[in-house]
Structures are given as structure tokens and as C-alpha cells.
């Protein structure tokens, strides 16, 4: 039971708890109307110290579709943080008004500090470059729903693997399942951090390889997780020009992909996935956004301990 707990990082959940959560999300997808009133009378506070339209609206939509209410702020300027109030004091106050909170904060660990300061469940909605557990839950639900399993597949993670927190969380989460192979596609300077390589992949004897070009590995992948590579992340212009097209997914690259591969992206996309792919049945990134709402519905229900 997750009732009364907080979700700060994806590994806070055991595999059994994760399964239970994803099962509930699956049931909600099948029959959303059955869950339309389960959170009636409950209030979700969205405490967003930095803007994130997508994540905040996904949380709010989730609570509204469960019949609950939402309140909150969407920038630090419009909260008492602007007056210098600590995260701990803010959450203690909010806990007087709300039943559950989702927090995004530019400083890493802020949602953990909040969770340690209150008995109200706190959900980390992204803390700096650190964790974004509901994105990971979204990714897991999407893979499980579309591929039918969370084990025995090869996943390619492409783009900025150094600073991309969604990538780090997803690697950690998938490393607990059987026979997952990772193909890590990035320029050399944007490879996964050493601690992910050593403390997660090598330590758990997980098969992985690091490559520079997406086009060379397309046919190996069951899942392709795209992220954006920003020009300013490259160390020099020459490397950027040499490699930039390799991190853009287009119809030509898709020709070499398996017919049942799925393409994921945490969104927002800029140009790393060509819009010509959008109509390809393997493009799953907009479905993924929808699953994000369903998994947040399941999470809110579990943390509040409400049942159908």
C-alpha cells in the first residue's frame, strides 16, 4: 500500500508496488468513467516553483478526472518563496489546505525536503536536473501498454544522455527488470554520467553499448527513446556539424527500424523528431503524454488510499 507515502524518486517503489500502480493505471485506461468521482472532496496542490505547463496540467487533469479539485502556483514569483519562505514552511502551510501535493522546484532535493516536513503525500514533479519520477512512470506505462511487457527487450536511448534526467531515471527503473539491453546513442561528451554506468549498469551486469550514430543501430531496437541534443552542449562546432543529423529521427532512419518498434519522447520536441514521423504507427510520443495523465491518476489514488 502506498497510502500516505510520498514519491520522490522512481526507486522509492518496489517492483510489486510499481506493478500494482501500473495495473491500476491500466484499469483506468479501460474504463475512466468508473473513476470519475473517486477523489471527490480531495484537493491537490500543484506547487510549481518553475514553469512547466505540460507536467502541471497533466497533474491537474489527472486530479480533475478523478473528481477532485486543484489549487497552486506556477512560478516562484507568485508564491511566498519570493519572500524567502523555506520549502519546509511552505509545505507545512499547504498541508493545512490540501490532501496531496505535486512539486516542481529548480533546486535538487527540494521535494524530498518537503516530504520530510509533512505527513501529506508529496509527489516530485521534477527537481532541477535530478529526478522526475512521474515521467519515468509514464515511460514505463507506455512501454508496458504498447509492448505488453517490461522485460526482454532492447531499448535505445538517444541524444543528451548526460544531462537528461528522464534518461537516468528510466535506466535505473528498467535495470530492475529481466534481460533489458541498453543501446546508448550520443556524442562522446554527452554520454551517461559515470555513476549510472558504474553503479547501475556494470554493477548489475546489464548488457549495454555506447555508440555515436543512431542510423547504425536502428534495426536492433524494440524501443527508441529520443531526447533533444542542444547545440550549446557540444564542446565544439565541428563535432556539432558532424553529428547533428545523427540525432534527428526521420523517415529514412525509420525504414531500418523493426515494424513493431515504438518511438518515445518526453516532449516537448523541437526538431529531433521530424514531423513526417508523426503519422507513423510506431510514433508513440503523443500516446505517451496521455498515458502520463493516466499514471498520475493511478498515483494520486494510491497515495491518497482511495479506492473505486
Amino acid at each position: 500500500m502506498l497510502k500516505g507515502r510520498s514519491l520522490i524518486e522512481p526507486m522509492d517503489l518496489s517492483l510489486e508496488e510499481l506493478d500494482e500502480l501500473l495495473n491500476l493505471a491500466g484499469k483506468i485506461i479501460e474504463n475512466p468513467a468508473a473513476y470519475a468521482d473517486v477523489c471527490k472532496g480531495k484537493v491537490l496542490a500543484t506547487l510549481f516553483y518553475e514553469p512547466s505547463t505540460r507536467t502541471r496540467l497533466s497533474f491537474e487533469a489527472a486530479m480533475l478526472r478523478l473528481g477532485g479539485s486543484v489549487m497552486g502556483f506556477s512560478s516562484a514569483d507568485s508564491s511566498s518563496a519570493a519572500k524567502g519562505e523555506s520549502v519546509a514552511d511552505t509545505i507545512r502551510t499547504i498541508a493545512c489546505y490540501a490532501d496531496i501535493a505535486a512539486m516542481r522546484h529548480p533546486k535538487e532535493g527540494a521535494p524530498m525536503v518537503a516530504a520530510m516536513s509533512t505527513d501529506m503525500p508529496v509527489i516530485n514533479g521534477g527537481d532541477g536536473g535530478h529526478q522526475h519520477p512521474t515521467q519515468t512512470l509514464t515511460d514505463l506505462l507506455t512501454i508496458r501498454t504498447l509492448k505488453g511487457r517490461l522485460d526482454n527487450f532492447t531499448i535505445g536511448l538517444c541524444g543528451d544522455l548526460k544531462f537528461g534526467r528522464t534518461v537516468h531515471s528510466l535506466i535505473k527503473a528498467l535495470s530492475r527488470y529481466e534481460n533489458i539491453k541498453f543501446v546508448l546513442i550520443s556524442p562522446e561528451e554527452l554520454r551517461i554520467p559515470d555513476y549510472i554506468r558504474e553503479e547501475i549498469l556494470i554493477k548489475n551486469k546489464i548488457e549495454f553499448k555506447e555508440v555515436e550514430r543512431l542510423e547504425n543501430v536502428m534495426d536492433e531496437l524494440d524501443v527508441l527513446y529520443m531526447t533533444r541534443v542542444q547545440k550549446e552542449r557540444f564542446f565544439n562546432e565541428a563535432d556539432y556539424i558532424r553529428l547533428k543529423d545523427s540525432y534527428i529521427l526521420d523517415a529514412e532512419k525509420m525504414e531500418n527500424a523493426k515494424s513493431d518498434m515504438i518511438v518515445l519522447h518526453p516532449l516537448p520536441r523541437v526538431n529531433e523528431i521530424s514531423t513526417e514521423i508523426d503519422s507513423d504507427p510506431r510514433a508513440a510520443y503523443f500516446k505517451q503524454a496521455k498515458y502520463g495523465m493516466f499514471v498520475r491518476m493511478a498515483l494520486i489514488m494510491e497515495l491518497l488510499g482511495v479506492e473505486i
Binding site: S86, V87, A88, H105, P106, K107, E108, G109, V113, G128
Partner: peptide
Amino acid sequence: KNPRCITSIEQEI
């Protein structure tokens, strides 16, 4: 020592 850590701005933690 991480400048992005919450402990860098909230001294009482």
C-alpha cells in the same frame, strides 16, 4: 558542493 542542491539555498537543512 552541488550549487543546484536545495541545501545550497536553505541553510537550516
